[in-house]
């Protein structure tokens, strides 16, 4: 009687152990498959999001497509197929690890904690974490949040920072963790939360689809500086070198600045709003000296 009871478990165990091996050489994998899967975000405006035709667009998406061009040249695969797989802040890292996604360029912060799990490319953007709130709310900084409902997106560095802030300063905030930035903004816009904590560039991006953008304001002293990188599998030097040189090339050639102007200083879909998000000193420095250092 013992054996049949155990066997499904044993079978399951074998299945699992077998399941968790992923090829480390992405270029090899892409070459064999004849296709690459890019992870993208659904509402990280203006980095990676849907326009009104459900096409994926954005600053990070443009960079990802440049990397794909470089892969095509490197592997001499003219008709490399590109598949798009939407990811959330919560599942992007497991999906890179389990091989569903080969490269994710969205709005992912490169930090030392995550470096234990995945690899990061040369930094593509630098942001600070701040607050989006109604002009009329009277909230000026993080200390004004005591006792209030505050929303952030699940799985982001902001979520961790906000929880820590809440513990350290005993602010007694009620933290709502939404699925993605779109849902976070919805939570804010419908009045469920008094403020939305997130990377400043994304907050300006969310403003771009507000019903009345003039009602909202970004406030607060940045709680942290964050370096966005594209995510790839850990210990995959050949692929990382290719991605890094491509991105660094964009920056030193001045092409990255053009992308910046296109997404942050011109009208963008879906509503044709201009984010007017000026190039920061950190970004100027990054474009001058591309690197893959984490800021945390």
């Amino acid at each position: 009687m013992k054996l049949p009871r155990l066997s499904p478990l044993v079978f399951g165990g074998v299945l699992l152990v077998g399941a968790v091996q992923v090829p480390a050489d992405t270029l090899e994998k892409v070459k064999d498959a004849g296709s690459i899967t890019l992870g993208h975000r659904e509402s990280s405006i203006p980095f990676s999001y849907y326009d009104d035709q459900q096409r994926v667009i954005g600053y990070s998406q443009d960079i990802a497509l440049r990397v794909v061009d470089a892969i095509k040249r490197e592997l001499q695969l003219r008709d490399l197929q590109v598949r798009l797989n939407p990811v959330t802040s919560q599942n992007r890292i497991p999906l890179i690890q389990n091989g569903t996604v080969d490269l994710e360029c969205g709005s992912t912060t490169n930090n030392t904690e995550r470096q234990k799990q995945v690899g990061f490319s040369t930094t593509i953007f630098v942001v600070g974490t701040r607050l989006l709130t109604k002009k009329a709310s009277g909230i000026q900084d993080f200390s004004d949040l005591a006792g209030k409902n505050v929303v952030t997106t699940a799985g982001t560095t902001s979520e961790r920072l906000l929880r820590k802030l809440n513990e350290d300063k005993q602010l007694n905030m009620k933290i709502i963790s939404a699925k993605d930035h779109g849902e976070s903004f919805l939570t804010l816009e419908t009045g469920r939360a008094a403020a939305f904590m997130m990377d400043d560039a994304l907050l300006y991006g969310e403003l771009a689809k507000a019903k009345r953008p003039g009602d909202w304001v970004v406030v607060g002293i940045p709680q942290s500086s964050e370096a966005y990188g594209c995510v790839l599998r850990k210990d995959d030097p050949a692929f990382k070198t290719l991605v890094d040189t491509t991105i660094a090339g964009l920056m030193t050639s001045g092409e990255a600045q053009k992308l910046y102007a296109k997404w942050f200083e011109s009208p963008i879909p879906p509503k044709g709003l201009n984010l007017n998000f000026p190039l920061s000193a950190e970004m100027v420095e990054l474009y001058r000296n591309p690197n893959d250092r984490a800021l945390q």
């Binding site: 299945l15 077998g18 399941a19 968790v20 091996q21 090829p23 389990n98 091989g99 569903t100």
Partner: peptide, 8 residues
Amino acid sequence: IVPTLLQR
């Protein structure tokens, strides 16, 4: 699980 299984 499925993606890794398929590849393997």
